[in-house]
Design a protein around this nucleic acid. Structure first.
Lengths: 201, 201
DNA sequence: GCATTCTCTTGACTTTCGATCAAGACCGAT
DNA sequence: ATCGGTCTTGATCGAAAGTCAAGAGAATGC
């Protein structure tokens, strides 16, 4: 009988390719990250990548899926943390992949793999945000709306590379947060009542 | 001496190519809109397009620039119109090019033509929105923040094709508007009863 | 009329990149 | 040692953006 050769160091090679792809994608973007460059950086032949990932889009999806898992594990374990802090932590995490925001949405229109990864991401993020807004005192309906707004806001911000000014970006998110969930339980600073139109900045 | 031949029907041909490109881009997206298909639809040879537009990205930029001009001319001439109505009109305009949102931001990273067009668009839109929020009673600082939020929100929404449910999309924008500019002068009752509590998708 | 000179058109070509294929190298089990 | 599956590779394809050289067409100067 034949010998079914085990998958050897498949996982290791796979990881090396993922690392190479992530490195290149985050620095050079999708287009400049050719499969040849990924292979070169991972130390394999040009087309060996296709043995591990069926297409460039699946590779992109795999890179982002891995990042998402890592990011989720690294987020503050809520409960005790202030809502602002949690949202800013989320923003910071997504910041690192900001220059892939446009790419992901563009590729999701062509690749079901990217679309599914993206869908899963949004599902997770939406759940997280909804819970945050519930904790901040919104009812289920408002929390759902606020979560959608916050997600769209973050993605909209990340579409523009020029938002390199992270302070202004954080400011914008906090400014919005204050208006979407004005009366939070946490008595940090003054949660100004909706009547007052004065800005906080 | 030579005869400097005038530009003949340059503008007409240019318009035909723009029309063909717009038709294809809005329906099939950037990738499926090959220069060959644009040329075919416009009734010229494959590479004749390059006589009128130096590159595919410049063609994309030209298409969107033209649309922007048309859209600006078609927007309600403000003043008397309610803020909600104006924002929704803007949203509806952008809706028609929603499936190019991701593409534009992706291409802007590679093409200065697209980047400049996009920059001009944002400048115009930001001015418009800032004025709207000023009219709605916000001070300059808040109006500037609100304009940024609203723009990011709209782009964030348009990133996702699934927001085909325009009612839910309008709902989300109005819900946000109410929180960003709560005490508006216009006493058109509440154009948005908070009762529109239905969640979307 | 007719050649000149510029505007525009075209088919053929180059280059780049994602993806495929056939052939074989490697290795573990029998 | 040999068989069969796992992996690797060089060669190659197909599509699409963009280039090039040659030429068609028309308006002006003669």
């Amino acid at each position: 009988m034949p010998a079914t050769r085990p998958h050897l160091d498949r996982d290791l090679k796979r990881k090396q390719i993922l690392d190479a792809a992530e490195y290149l994608l985050l620095r050079s973007g999708y287009e400049a990250t050719t499969m040849a460059r990924v292979a070169g950086r991972a130390g394999v032949a040009n087309n060996a990548v296709y043995w591990y990932f069926p297409s460039k889009d699946e590779l992109l999806a795999a890179v982002l899926r891995r990042r998402q898992e890592q990011a989720l594990a690294r987020l503050p374990t809520s409960v005790a943390t202030a809502v602002e802090e949690q949202i800013l932590a989320m923003l910071a995490q997504l910041d690192e992949v900001a220059n892939l925001t446009a790419t992901v949405h563009e590729r999701a229109e062509h690749s079901t793999a990217v679309a599914e990864m993206h869908e899963a991401f949004h599902s997770a993020a939406d759940g997280l945000l909804r819970r945050l807004f519930r904790d901040a005192g919104l009812d289920e309906t408002d929390a759902s709306q606020a979560a959608k707004v916050m997600m769209a806001l973050i993605e909209g911000i990340h579409l523009h590379e020029r938002s390199r000014d992270s302070a202004a970006r954080d400011d914008l998110v906090l400014w919005t947060l204050q208006r979407l969930a004005p009366n939070r339980p946490t008595a940090d600073a003054q949660a100004l009542p909706a009547a007052s139109t004065t800005a906080m900045n």
